[in-house]
Design a protein around this nucleic acid. Sequence first.
DNA 1: TTATCTCGTGAGAGCGCTCTCACGGGTGCT
DNA 2: AGCACCCGTGAGAGCGCTCTCACGAGATAA
Lengths: 343, 343
Amino acid sequence: MALKSMRGAPRRPTLEEVGAVAGVSRATVSRVVNGSPKASPAVRAEVERAIARLGYVPNRAARTLVTRRTDTIALVVSEPEARVFGDPFFAALVRGIGAAVSMKDLQLVLVMAQGTREHEKVERYVRQGHVDGVVLMSLHGEDPLPGAFVEAGIPTVLVGRPKGDPVVPFVDADNRGGARLAVQFLIARRRRRIATITGPLDMCVGVDRFEGYRDALTAAHIPQRKGLVQGGDFTEEAGHVALTRLLEKNPDIDGVFVASDLMAAGALQALRAAGRRVPQDVAVVGFDDAPLARHTSPALTTIRQPLDEMVAQTSEMLFRQVAGASRTEHVIVPTSLIKRKSA
Amino acid sequence: MALKSMRGAPRRPTLEEVGAVAGVSRATVSRVVNGSPKASPAVRAEVERAIARLGYVPNRAARTLVTRRTDTIALVVSEPEARVFGDPFFAALVRGIGAAVSMKDLQLVLVMAQGTREHEKVERYVRQGHVDGVVLMSLHGEDPLPGAFVEAGIPTVLVGRPKGDPVVPFVDADNRGGARLAVQFLIARRRRRIATITGPLDMCVGVDRFEGYRDALTAAHIPQRKGLVQGGDFTEEAGHVALTRLLEKNPDIDGVFVASDLMAAGALQALRAAGRRVPQDVAVVGFDDAPLARHTSPALTTIRQPLDEMVAQTSEMLFRQVAGASRTEHVIVPTSLIKRKSA
DNA sequence: TTATCTCGTGAGAGCGCTCTCACGGGTGCT
DNA sequence: AGCACCCGTGAGAGCGCTCTCACGAGATAA
């Protein structure tokens, strides 16, 4: 006893002890703590005084053990952080989900999962019952995490459409439609030799944005050429490299749709290095409406995703699941064109 | 009973059930699960088979209740996310702490705390015993969180020096020394009318970097002029505004030390708008070595903080505290100049 | 008055786990 | 053969909480 109280934190008071001080039973203290109506005002006051005096804080583990609820929601990010931080989409997601969760008096925790080892740790973390629900941000096609959570019976909502048959409820932007918008805009600006720098095609978002590009060309009866397509991995360097290659093969391109703003920034640099003027010689449209889109030179015309709405949908779907209604559903929200100087 | 098992997840198997299947007691299963050496190989194998068959996952709440450990560490961010995401410093912190924590077989969770209401929620979260320790990122002078955690007996390490008398162990970069370095470099480049755009002076980091600026001027016997100092809040816009004002009052400035790269990016734009060439007319040095520093035009000369070392120090200090050694200490790591094109 | 209801309260079980302790069957020692 | 030891195992207590249930006191109805 004495020894125990010496090492580390001095053992925190328990319900029983609060009860002893207030002259009531553990059960009554519990009622007061949980705001149960069946506690007389007099007793309530007495108990509250005792709680304040002892600095009582309920032990979460004990409560969780019996209620089977943790009152915390995890935002699991199954991506390299490098890609995720600085992504405005991610920041908005955190803010939005955080606010929604906070409103329900839950606590949001962010959990990073990159690499197989981390995946396993995160899966274990969730399965062990640390959280009541999961918002999973994962853009990779073959991510095992969504399936694992669903199988474990954890309420889960995915942000970003998964590849293949979606077994998990998800929310995504209309990437294909957005890409179409971008390319249509380039076409309207009288561009005819329109190239694209795609994202990784093992990601749904990469594929979708590429399909949108093709849709628009097809609709305008512009023939598609293989040489006008270059892949990238959403990084700035990739954008630079891809555009350089594009220029080598097609010195005559007059428009580029780039599947992410970061890559577009790289592309812009490459164009400048090659002596091309933007938008006079080559018009450029990006995707994401990242903050940096405002600060490239010229400022980047791009496609915006309605983050607020996505966030609202996501949290709503999650809470519905946590509450018990378990439906596999999904929502696609529209995207829009933001006109700046690059196109 | 039947009702309970109908709603939500089908109740997960317990130690007892695994034991029944394996034909051993709960205690023995526990030994196998926890890798205790006192379990014979034969029994171990049998138990492991039962675990696999039932898909047993230990209940964390129950374990925590008795061990009083959660095996999770929180990274509490007591800042508006807007400022924090995209901050390379923060990303590196997450990666680094994450790796260190992972190595110890702990789980890292990120917790955001902005606004008083959130502060309270986070404090409650931590006090309730959700985590074994906290890394607290907070740059505000009067943040109540560090004190609260320490008072609650939670192992805590602060990243960024707090204002006033530090009661909490912390790790910080040598902001003052770094700023001195920056200004010394400008002086060495024969700049004599050196202005500065400071950070918020209610933050330690803001004050420190300003003091460094003054140190360098004093050492070089360059008189300081009030008009050469403008405050900002670390955002790009603030940098733009501040530099514009600076130019109005002092058309003849030939060097600027900007207390953050983001503000420096804004300043660079303002300089361009004003028709000043960088670095020929005005040399600029930033602070942070943010990724964007590489991509401004011209690329930004700046001060780098050794993130890796800060992270290593932070996690080491935290683990030491969690292990029981409770010392109030602190570490300041050196900064260095990164030469690019803007100075 | 007696019977019937509230209504606030306490006793007690039990959530799933860890950990101490006692026990029985080897070993190795005298 | 007798003793002292391990060493693997099970029984059982107990972590701090919630929640059901029984109970007694007071209010209401007959």
